[in-house]
Computed example of a mutant assay.
Amino acid sequence: MSSNKPRAITWFKDFMGVGYRYHDVYMNVFPLFQDKMPAFKLWNKSVDWWPDDQIKLRFVEDGDHYWFILYGGSDYKKDNTGFVKKVPMSENYQRFKVGYEKKVMLRFGIYKENTNPKRKERDGSMKKFDLEILKKTKSVYDIAFLQLPELAKDSVEWQCITQQQEENSSQ
């Protein structure tokens, strides 16, 4: 074995889900977190150091769910954190899949319950949740939509999903 063997990826799964935004030049995709400070620190520790041309964004469809898998790694920081979450299929995901144009802007989003009674929807009703999208971005060019049964058994995606399923079944 050579010393160029890829480092194992540490999979981070403690985020709420995945959000999509369509109103920019390029579509945005963002893992959703509940708290701004931990999300900001995680971005600075890992994603901020990923070279844009090495970031991989995978959507592995599995029945009525899909696996969101994001990884890049940094040689400079020696950090190899990846992000994984199994989420239900949604209209937003389908719209994203059809409409993205070979490039996506990666950001982090903060999705939390609104506790300010003055924050209202346009119709005057109480706004239940607030979404804040952090300013830092990365450009992602390596985007793939895959089917679970078609994954190669030695692929990063297969190994990630298998590891997550094993961890979930042992809990």
Rank of each mutant, 00 (worst) to 15 (best):
P31V: 03
K138S: 13
D35K: 14
D130T: 12
K135E: 14
Y76W: 09
K36D: 08
Y93R: 08
D48K: 12
G99D: 13
Q159K: 06
Y26N: 15
Y93W: 12
E150D: 15
V104N: 01
D79R: 06
T115G: 13
K45L: 15
V60K: 03
I9A: 05
K127I: 04
M16R: 10
V84H: 07
L32F: 08
M89T: 02
V47L: 11
M126Q: 14
P117D: 14
R107V: 01
Q34S: 12
K103M: 14
Y20E: 04
P88K: 08
E150I: 06
S2N: 15
K153P: 02
L134Y: 09
K97D: 11
D79V: 13
V98I: 11
V29L: 14
I161R: 01
Q54T: 06
K138V: 05
D24L: 13
I55M: 07
S2R: 14
L42R: 12
D53A: 07
T115A: 11
V87Y: 08
I110V: 12
G109L: 03
Q163P: 00
D130P: 01
K56H: 09
W49N: 11
F129H: 10
N4G: 10
F145C: 06
R7L: 13
K112Q: 15
K97L: 09
L131Y: 06
D14N: 13
Q164W: 03
K127A: 14
L32Q: 08
L146S: 02
L42G: 00
V140K: 01
M89H: 08
K77G: 04
Q147H: 10
Y22T: 07
K136S: 12
L134Q: 05
L134H: 05
W11S: 03
E101K: 10
E167G: 00
I133A: 05
T162M: 09
S74D: 07
N168F: 07
Q159T: 05
D142I: 00
P149G: 09
F108K: 04
Y141Q: 05
Q94K: 11
S3T: 11
K36C: 14
E132H: 00
K135C: 02
D142T: 05
M27A: 11
W11I: 04
V140G: 06
Y93E: 04
F83G: 00
K128V: 07
K97V: 03
K41H: 13
F68H: 09
D130K: 09
F96D: 02
V98T: 08
P38M: 09
W43Y: 12
E132G: 07
V47H: 03
E61P: 02
E61F: 03
K45H: 13
L146Y: 02
T10H: 09
K118C: 08
P117L: 11
L42M: 14
K118I: 07
N80M: 03
T162F: 06
I133F: 10
E166Y: 04
N168Y: 06
G99L: 07
D14G: 12
S169A: 15
C160N: 07
